[in-house]
Design a protein around this nucleic acid. Structure first.
Lengths: 312, 312
DNA sequence: TTAATATTTGACAAAACTTGAACAAATAAT
DNA sequence: ATTATTTGTTCAAGTTTTGTCAAATATTAA
């Protein structure tokens, strides 16, 4: 297995090289092997471990108490208290320092305002090592999309900003699900918006939610005809289709589209509908036996139960 | 099997000849055969290997540690790239052998047909380590987009396929330019399509071209109003705006949009127009002093000359 | 022959790494 | 309030690594 010099470890963990060394000397957090000339060489496990330790210390744990914990114990620790806001870092001049979720959010927001896609992505990449995935979704990506959408509607931001934010989040969603939905056996879900629904914010959020719930997420983008959605579902053996309806709330075509989708699918997949305007189409939704979810946590709940049923 | 002298290898790998020799002498990174007169002759595998080693060192790995790794190990090392997931990655099961550009193209195409975004991305990732960036753009991404677009127009593929292909390429463009346009001093270019132009294939290709020509590329997506384009240009101090016009070829709004863009910019940036339908708007293009390019290589030529002029 | 390209060796300087010590800021203990 | 302890950073001095260069020699092509 290839081993890495300390600069690579620093880059991937977001910790400074000095800190990594001092954690080793003072607490034996990791024990890298050495070359004949005394250089440290780290394994991939060492890096994972340091990332976990970094997150844990950010959420308030003291390094001396956790340095010797096993990987499993660290994961348990993090998933239990994932919501703790990190303490304010006094000196934040280096871009390598790990920041809190709200700081990342602010940086992303500024980058969107400045129309700098590269900066957004770099920020999100850093955030992804500094935060747990749940925190990244719920405290950074979600709020970012909501606030950009709101400001766009109020006229403070322009279409480009909304486009740009979706593009970046979409990119990130793609990256995530790539390295995440590991199992080939994972249940599949198609996420999209029907014809007439041009805004993909909701669909993207649904995609993020599904991915973090362990589904293999196939994101089709906005404004897709029922026939195309259906063929995607059948082609992929997807168990669920998630549709996001944001605006308009009274599109006369929607009834047709949904019924058509239901007909072609013939019960082979569960249709789940959500979004701000979903309520407006309740009649059709009930008629075709689709599920209506009112927010992302009920989506997650539905997905979990569908998954456990089919797994049995 | 064809063998290559060192100057060819240097050109293809982007490494200096001296560096290639020193990697051989100090670490046995490659062991080219010699002619009777002691000249080195490299195989294609040697070249691939050197490209991989170059990328790995670029990302921080130390040459002394990785010089002896096998090709597969190098690829795995590079694929680990951005995120490190605690879970076992499905990349272990992926075929790691390096293929030719046309094989990658075929795999991508099949993945698009099967609506499998994850597979497309995995394939492109492998292609990106197995091929030079130029080959990836010109022999895989470009042809993929063109053929998907054509088949869509002929009715063999559906909208989803086109959406999916653009989404993946867009994602990939984002990734590329992130790790690519390193220089803060690099000239900036805005790439987009005006209102009414819904297809982003051309714009994506233009973005890829600009990125590989060393420009910091800011991609806004399709269907953007002139006012928004202009504010993006001014906000970013961009030197060039590239617009792609594919379909329709006779939108009556286009005249207004282009003139408006020209007026707001006031000569602060060069407007370049391209795409299948650009010719149809020649009148306006000439009127506002924009450049019309007929293909991607002329775009590249224009960008090169603009860059060298402003650099002086 | 002349100019361009390669090869080998040794040398060199910049960048990176290691260790030890000192320091300031924040926390905990008295 | 004062005193320890913890924690992360910074500095200095001494190695090691790494890419580049120059010099001397050899080969190739025009």
């Amino acid at each position: 297995m290839p081993k890495h010099p300390i600069r690579v470890v620093a880059k991937k963990t977001g910790l400074s090289a000095g800190l990594i060394r001092i954690w080793e000397r003072r607490h034996g957090a990791v024990t890298p092997v050495r070359t004949e000339t005394n250089r440290r060489l780290y394994t991939d496990e060492d890096i994972e471990r340091l990332i976990l330790l970094g997150r844990a210390t950010q959420s308030g744990e003291s390094i001396s108490q956790i340095a010797r914990l096993s990987k499993d114990e660290l994961i348990k620790l993090l998933s239990a208290g994932g919501h703790i806001e990190p303490k304010e870092s006094s000196a934040d001049r280096v871009d390598l320092t790990i920041k809190s979720a709200s700081e990342y959010l602010e940086l992303c927001f500024k980058a969107v305002r400045d129309l700098d896609p590269g900066l957004i992505e770099a920020t999100l990449l850093k955030a992804s090592v500094g935060l747990t995935q749940r925190a990244l979704f719920e405290q950074v990506l979600g709020p970012l999309m909501y606030s950009v959408g709101d400001l766009w509607r109020e006229g403070d931001l322009k279409v480009v900003h909304e486009h740009l934010a979706s593009a970046v989040v979409r990119t990130f969603l793609g990256n995530m699900s790539g390295g995440y939905a590991a199992h080939e056996s994972a249940p599949r879900i198609i996420v999209t918006t029907p014809v007439g629904q041009l805004h993909e914010f909701g669909a993207l959020m649904a995609g993020l939610t599904a991915a973090s719930a362990g589904w293999k997420t196939i994101y089709l983008g906005p404004n897709i005809p029922a026939g195309d959605i259906a063929s995607a579902v059948l082609h992929n053996n997807a168990r669920v289709v998630a549709l996001s309806l944001i605006y308009p709330a009274d599109d006369p075509r929607m009834g047709n589209e949904l019924e058509q989708l239901h007909t072609i699918l013939g019960g082979k997949a569960q249709i789940i509908v959500g979004g701000r305007s979903a309520e407006g189409y309740r009649n059709v939704i009930d008629k075709i036996g689709a599920l209506l979810v009112k927010d992302l946590s009920s989506l997650q709940f539905r997905l979990d139960s569908i998954r456990s049923v089919n797994a049995a």
